[in-house]
C-alpha cells in the first residue's frame, strides 16, 4: 500500500504583538523564593538575553551553596562574554568560597576565557593575578607555559611569582630554566622563591 502524504497546511498566523521577553520574573524569584525556587529561577533565566548579568549580580549575594552551583553551571552553559567577565569580577570578592567556586568554574569554561585570563594577568590587584595563575593549567591553552614565564620575568609581586613557579614545577620545560634562574636572582632574599625555583629547576632537568 502506498503511503499517502498529506500536504502540510501552513496556517497563517495573524500579526499579534508578542509580549517582550524579560527576565524580570525569574530575577525576582532569585531574590525572593526559597532555595528550591531560586535554583529553578537560575535555570529558567538562562533563556533571556540579559541572563549572565542578572545571574552574576545575584551570585555575589547568594549564600546557599546549591543555588550558587546552579548559577555557576548556568553561566558555564551560557559561556558568553558577559558570563566570563562577570565571573572574572567575582575573583575580587571577599568571599573565599565564591572565589574558589569561580576558579573551578573558569576551569570548566572553554576558549572564551583565554583572552580574559590573559588580560587579568595584568590586573592591578595581585590577588586577582594569583587567582588567574591558579586557573591556568597546561590543558587550558598551549601557551600557558609562556604566560607563566612572562609572569616570573615581569611581575613584581612575590606571591604572584611564587604561584607561577608552583605551576611551572608541573608544566615547566627547558624554556623556563633561564627565567627561573633570573627569578632567583631578582628575589634573592625570599627563601620561598629560592626553594620553589630550585624545585622547579630540578624537576625540569630530570625530565
Amino acid at each position: 500500500m502506498s503511503l499517502v502524504k498529506h500536504k502540510v497546511v501552513q496556517l497563517a498566523v495573524p500579526d499579534k504583538p508578542q509580549p517582550e521577553r524579560s527576565c524580570s520574573e525569574p530575577a525576582s524569584s532569585l531574590k525572593n523564593a526559597d532555595a528550591a525556587g531560586r535554583r529553578q529561577a537560575a535555570r529558567e533565566i538562562a533563556q533571556f538575553p540579559d541572563a549572565a548579568v542578572t545571574l552574576v549580580s545575584h551570585l555575589k549575594c547568594e549564600r546557599n551553596a546549591a543555588v550558587r552551583e546552579v548559577i555557576l553551571t548556568t553561566l558555564v552553559r551560557l559561556n558568553d562574554r558577559s558570563a566570563v567577565s562577570g565571573l572574572a569580577d567575582c575573583l575580587r570578592s571577599e568571599d573565599a568560597a565564591l572565589r574558589n567556586e569561580v576558579i573551578g568554574t573558569f576551569k570548566r569554561l572553554g576558549d572564551e576565557v583565554v583572552p580574559v585570563l590573559r588580560s587579568l594577568l595584568a590586573d592591578p590587584d595581585p590577588d586577582v593575578r594569583i587567582f588567574v595563575v591558579n586557573i591556568l593549567d597546561s590543558e587550558l591553552h598551549p601557551e600557558v607555559e609562556s604566560w607563566l614565564i612572562d609572569v616570573i620575568e615581569r611581575d613584581t609581586h612575590v606571591n604572584v611569582c611564587a604561584t607561577a613557579v608552583d605551576l611551572l614545577c608541573e608544566v615547566g620545560t627547558e624554556a623556563a630554566i633561564d627565567p627561573l634562574v633570573r627569578l632567583k636572582a631578582r628575589f634573592q632574599f625570599e627563601p620561598y622563591i629560592q626553594f620553589a625555583a630550585d624545585l622547579a629547576l630540578k624537576r625540569i632537568r630530570e625530565v
Partner: peptide, 11 residues
C-alpha cells in the same frame, strides 16, 4: 593545595 608550599613548610 600547593604541593610546593606543603613541601616548604614541611621542611
Amino acid at each position: 593545595d600547593a604541593a610546593t608550599v606543603r613541601m616548604y613548610h614541611r621542611g
